[in-house]
Simulated assay, not measured.
Amino acid sequence: MAVKEATAREALGMQRAREELCLEAEEFEVALQTGEVRTAPAVGGRRRVVREDVDRLREEEGFPDRLRARLELVGSIEGAALIGISRERFTRLAKGGFLRPVRWYVNRYRAVVWLYLAEDVRRFARAHPALLEGRLPAPLRDALDEGEDRRARGWRARRVEELVRDAEDAWAEASAWCALLGPEAAADAVPDERERAHLRRLCPALPAGSTGSYATRELIEAQTVASHPDEVTFAQVSLADALLRARADGPAPHPERATPAAASARPIAPPPSAEPAPPTTPAPRSRWRRLLGLG
């Protein structure tokens, strides 16, 4: 569950925290997403950054370069070069579920491009040296030949874990599982319209980050909605458990000003945010914007 509610002395605003950590906007987003920097609910419903995390990171040896290295994202070409294998082998290992993407975007050719934490790639190479050379295990080869591709499923699992980690209560946790199931499966799992509307307001869809201007609704839903039978079953069981705890705490609140259209809206992609003020210690931007498909 989320960190306890923050007071003004214990937490910082997002902009101030980013500046103190000397991070680009995209790096800071990854830090929040991966839990490198924690947030806590504050007065007014907004979230603030936990002060002790900022202090701890600033006191690290090699700050801020060491922190930036942990937040570095790589595509398949850079990830393969990082551990000395071919791009084709890297992609096959990622499709086999050995590497879980942390972000994705849609390029100009309407292809989904997956991004991985460089630190995850290094950790995988250290843990599985036998998979870096020679023939891949026969079961993995057979699964890949049959079209196995766990990248979207791995991203979804990671994203829901992050949302559940930051959930303020059981209703917020349930909303993450509900978003993973998608509107049709969620309607079957949560027949009460009042509860379903509340869950949609909390989390209408899995937040995908910067999907790029070429992303369509169909492409986004294909990455964000559970599709594998095992994945769907696990989400249904987890949703039922979260709902049981949520209902024990109290019924879903009445919608204050929600219309049917607003309640069922599923955003295709978040609008580009305004460019924030530069951090105290500027960092190069071009590579990050390229990786995230922002030009």
Rank of each mutant, 00 (worst) to 15 (best):
F28K: 04
G79F: 03
A8P: 10
H228T: 11
P253S: 07
P183T: 11
V237C: 08
R289P: 04
P282A: 00
E72N: 08
M1G: 13
G35W: 05
P137H: 06
T224V: 14
R56D: 07
P139W: 12
E221F: 10
L23W: 06
G154V: 09
L140E: 14
L131P: 12
E231N: 01
G75N: 11
E59V: 10
A226W: 02
E27W: 01
D192V: 02
D249P: 07
E52C: 06
T280M: 13
V50F: 03
E60G: 15
P64H: 05
A80I: 09
G209P: 01
L99W: 05
L291P: 00
E146A: 15
S264C: 08
L57I: 04
R165Q: 04
K4W: 13
R100V: 06
E88Y: 09
G96T: 05
V237N: 10
E10T: 15
A187K: 11
D230T: 08
A138R: 14
E10W: 09
R151T: 09
D55C: 07
G96Y: 01
E218L: 13
P255I: 00
T280D: 13
A179Y: 02
V190N: 01
V164K: 10
R247C: 05
A283L: 11
A265M: 12
P229N: 01
V160W: 01
V112E: 05
A226R: 01
A242L: 09
H198D: 10
L131F: 08
R135N: 12
G35M: 09
R66E: 13
T224F: 06
E59C: 12
T224G: 00
V54M: 06
L140Y: 13
E29M: 06
R285S: 09
A174N: 01
A80W: 01
E193N: 06
R9S: 15
P271V: 04
E184W: 09
G45I: 08
T259P: 00
E5S: 14
V237F: 11
A25V: 10
V160F: 03
S210H: 12
F124P: 07
D249H: 15
V3C: 12
Q33L: 11
A242E: 05
R158W: 10
H198K: 07
E24M: 10
P229E: 06
A2C: 12
V164Y: 07
F90S: 13
E52S: 15
A118G: 09
T34W: 00
E72T: 12
T281I: 14
Q223P: 02
